[in-house]
Simulated assay, not measured.
Amino acid sequence: MTQVRLPRPGARPRARHLVGVLAVAVLAGCAAPDPLTPMVSGTYTTRPMTDGAQIISPTDSPPPEPPPLESCGGLASLRPGPQPPPGQMPPGGSLAEIAGRGRLIVGVDQNTNLFSFRDPTTGTLQGFDIDMAKEIARDIFGDPTKVEFRLLTSAGRFSALENNDVDVVVHATAITCERARRVGFSTEYFRAFQRILVPKGSDITGPADLAGKRVCTFIDTTSLDTVQRVAPDATIVAVRDWDDCLVIMQKKQADATSTSDTLLAALVSQDPHFQIVGPPMEGEEHWGIGVNKFKDDLVRFVNGTLERIRADGTWMRMYDRWIAAPLGPVAGPPPATYGD
């Protein structure tokens, strides 16, 4: 039993002593500020940066504009053949390997709200890209739940395919000629435009206003190269995960964020104090599902799934569920382009 010690009869109160102790404790706490991050320019908060963030100074040599996809046939994927019924994958090849394993292994991330994020209530992965992966599994097994999701960074997407760590990558990935030389891509499954996110009331209204500002974007993505081309006088804060840019802007460590409008809309859905401004910074972004370069049978099968969901209304139902509210309605999914 806990003992309670009573004051001795006639003892003097100790309140004054306690106040002094508390005052010393408060002063001691105030004397230990958070470690500071050196400022690059401007008047930015000096709280520590997000783990893995990189500061990239303005450049006199911005990266060259990428060649148009038409020049390398980057949008022209492999035409689907006859789609085997679920549970009846042909022997040999990658489809038989997936069927024998009993699950489709899909590379995704968990920080892209609306597309691929972890629901805080259920702890499960949700979003447009997650539903897309489940549709592929539905066509292989007849069961959309037979998926193993593996979390990848943007930088790790392509090596995961090359090393056969995953079967497919559904990770908001823009098709480029350089990437198409490394991995196989499905036909386009989503179209986006790179724009700018700023706090409401910001004086930034378009790409021309980014000169001399700090702009957050993502390591090893086409978005970073675009910012350097369009705004070479901007300082870039490059981060590893999409949500890191939201945190950095909330901490006033960057003036703007630039990436696909769809991903920016996902950030706005988490904090309505921000808004998307300005016209697209460059041309369209064509997103594809990534597959190992040497697995043509899987590329054709994924394209068969995309053909189905375009035709039976599944794509539109997915869009209306996840994307229509922040970005508005669309006439339909992007059309397929085949090279054979």
Rank of each mutant, 00 (worst) to 15 (best):
R14I: 10
I55M: 13
V237A: 13
I196L: 02
E65R: 12
D225A: 15
A137Q: 12
G73F: 03
T305G: 01
L246T: 04
G184I: 04
T257Q: 07
V106D: 05
G52M: 13
L263S: 13
I289M: 01
A180Y: 07
S186T: 11
P35I: 06
S94V: 11
T124I: 07
L197N: 00
W322T: 05
I105G: 05
D143W: 03
Q83K: 12
R150E: 09
P35S: 13
P7E: 05
R191P: 00
M249E: 15
P7Q: 06
E97W: 00
G156H: 00
Q275F: 03
V21R: 10
I219Y: 04
V21T: 07
G20H: 05
G81V: 05
S77G: 03
A180C: 01
V166F: 03
Q54N: 13
P85I: 01
G100D: 15
A234S: 15
D261G: 15
G288M: 04
R16I: 11
K252D: 13
P9M: 07
S202M: 09
A172N: 11
M1P: 10
P90E: 13
D220H: 14
A325R: 14
G100L: 05
V147P: 00
A160M: 06
S269I: 02
P279G: 10
L152G: 11
V168D: 04
D209H: 12
A238L: 08
G73I: 09
F218R: 02
G20L: 11
I219G: 00
V237S: 12
T314E: 07
A137I: 07
V302L: 08
V227S: 11
T122V: 10
P329N: 09
G123T: 06
T112V: 09
M316E: 07
M89I: 05
P334W: 12
R101P: 10
R14E: 15
H286D: 08
T121R: 14
L264Y: 07
L224H: 08
N164C: 01
I136R: 02
N303C: 03
I219C: 01
T257K: 03
N292K: 11
M318R: 04
P199I: 01
I204D: 08
D129A: 15
G107W: 10
T187M: 06
R229Q: 05
A155Q: 06
G313N: 09
T217F: 05
G283V: 03
V291C: 06
A256C: 11
W287F: 15
F294M: 10
L95C: 08
V330F: 00
K252C: 02
P90A: 05
D109K: 04
A32N: 10
K200W: 06
G283N: 09
P84H: 08
A324G: 01
N292A: 14
R181C: 00
L69N: 13
P66D: 12
R214W: 04
F141C: 07
D271I: 03
S94E: 12
C30T: 11
V230K: 13
T122F: 10
W315G: 09
V166M: 10
E162C: 01
V169S: 13
L298V: 06
H17V: 09
V230C: 02
A311I: 03
Q275Y: 01
F274T: 09
L27H: 03
C72Q: 00
R181K: 15
M132G: 03
P199A: 15
P232D: 08
P91A: 11
I323L: 15
D243W: 03
P272D: 15
G20F: 04
G313K: 03
K200N: 11
A256E: 08
A325Y: 02
R101Y: 06
E70K: 12
I236P: 00
G339A: 01
